[in-house]
């Protein structure tokens, strides 16, 4: 039988893939002396929290987490609301030229942010929004909603017309029909979108790096990315910083796992 060698090879690969996570965790809990004395492979002898605490207070990590949560949370909610309204108008309201509008949204989605970055930076400065969370929230709400509209209008386009007809007969206006009928029925798709928008926004790096220059507005990835390789970061502190970046991401993955695996093919369209 060839089955065991194959299992062994695949398990080996899994170990290699997980290796960095394990190593980072081990060494985040070591003292600098313990790190230089032993091999990075050995588990820590005790739980030394100095590296993590030192990094946490140095960059005020709690504030970074809060910034990321506020930005990603508002973008996720606002972008889904905007997507639903757009898609309702396009998919059910049958706006004139809807195909071209959809193509435009799709192209907008594939455009590199580099091609928008400088004008956005310039406009944000002109509007007095530079270096504020609000600027990033507005920009990502629109970028995510471009994708959401594209996706949802395909979903809503197949929405059974009979239900809407019936609602109209009963005297429901367009917004009442949207709020009381369309939204509840498409709730599974909408919740997948909320989670995806949240995680995508959390993971963004380029535009937040440009917009959020001062310490008290930065998000988690920006703060970590900018501090990488700073002089005062010793081995265990760097490893602590990596761990602090990993933990929220893995936590979201575990919390949202069920929805994510259901929706991952939805994400594949992006």
């Amino acid at each position: 039988m060839r089955r065991y060698p194959i299992l062994a090879a695949l398990t080996m690969l899994a170990v290699v893939m997980l290796f960095p996570f394990v190593i980072v965790t081990f060494n985040a809990f070591k003292t600098p002396a313990e790190y230089s004395a032993g091999s990075p492979l050995s588990p820590p002898q005790g739980l030394d929290l100095d590296g993590i605490i030192a990094f946490w207070t140095r960059v005020d990590f709690g504030e970074k987490l809060l910034n990321s949560l506020v930005i990603s949370g508002s973008v996720a909610m606002l972008a889904v609301v905007l997507s639903v309204l757009n898609a309702y108008a396009l998919g059910i309201g049958r706006v004139r030229g809807r195909l071209w509008i959809l193509v435009l949204f799709l192209v907008a989605n594939t455009l590199p942010q580099e091609a928008l970055a400088y004008p956005l930076y310039y406009l944000a400065k002109a509007a007095g929004l530079y270096d504020s969370k609000l600027s990033v929230i507005i920009v990502f709400t629109v970028i995510q909603a471009a994708f959401g509209t594209y996706l949802l209008s395909a979903v809503l386009g197949q929405f059974p017309k009979e239900i809407l007809e019936a609602a109209r007969m009963d005297g429901a206006g367009r917004f009442l029909a949207l709020w009381r009928i369309v939204v509840p029925i498409s709730r599974p798709t909408l919740s997948v979108l909320v989670i995806f928008f949240f995680i995508w926004t959390w993971n963004e790096f380029f535009l937040p790096l440009i917009f959020l220059v001062s310490n008290d507005t930065q998000t988690v990835p920006v703060a970590l990315g900018v501090l990488q390789g700073e002089k005062y970061m010793d081995a265990t502190m760097s490893s602590a910083s990596a761990l602090l970046g990993i933990v929220p991401a893995v936590a979201f993955f575990l919390i949202f796992q069920r929805t994510l695996t259901r929706g991952i093919t939805v994400g594949a369209i992006k």
Binding site: L13, A14, M17, L18, P20, F21, V24, I199, W202, N203, E204, F205, V220, P221, V222, L224, G225, Q228, G229, A235, S238, S239, S241, A242, G245, I246, A249, V250, F252, F253
Partner: peptide, 18 residues
């Protein structure tokens, strides 16, 4: 195999930079 994908790409960079 999927776990690295859940990281923000900048954090993946921090991990490997270390």
């Amino acid at each position: 195999y999927y776990l690295p994908q859940v990281l923000p790409v900048a954090v993946a960079g921090v991990v490997w930079g270390w």
